[in-house]
Amino acid sequence: MSTLTTKQLGDTLASVTLPPVTRLDLIKYAGASGDYNPIHTIDKEAEKAGLPGIIAHGMWTMGNLAKLFTPYYEEGYIETYNIRFRGMVFLDDVITLQAEVKEQSEDKITFDVRARKETGEDVLRGEAVFAVYE
């Protein structure tokens, strides 16, 4: 099993490319999170808000991004997870999730994290601090 604690500065976690975003993804997230803002699920409401179509919840993408760290919960946990929402995700967009080590100390590893569209646009960017158990 690969471990996080052996990662070096500049090392990356295995990136994950999500299947194209579907309406059902967003309906499921609305139900699971309780965020029923209709710009995420109903075309007419998105248009009324001046959007070309429904957009993904920023928190859906942020939630997805955290899964890069899920295999490592025996080694530590995400202590800080900070994200700036920079761009919109539309239906059929293909998002790739990435993390790269940017800082290390004895008990913490800090990662640059991002969700990138196939156009190269970063729709989310931020940082995750992974606290390592002794």
Partner: peptide, 17 residues
């Protein structure tokens, strides 16, 4: 308001999961 808010940034700090 229920509509029209834009989520700009989100941060979680945890003591433990």
């Amino acid at each position: 308001p229920e509509k029209g808010l834009i989520h700009g940034e989100q941060t979680y700090h945890y003591e433990r999961p």
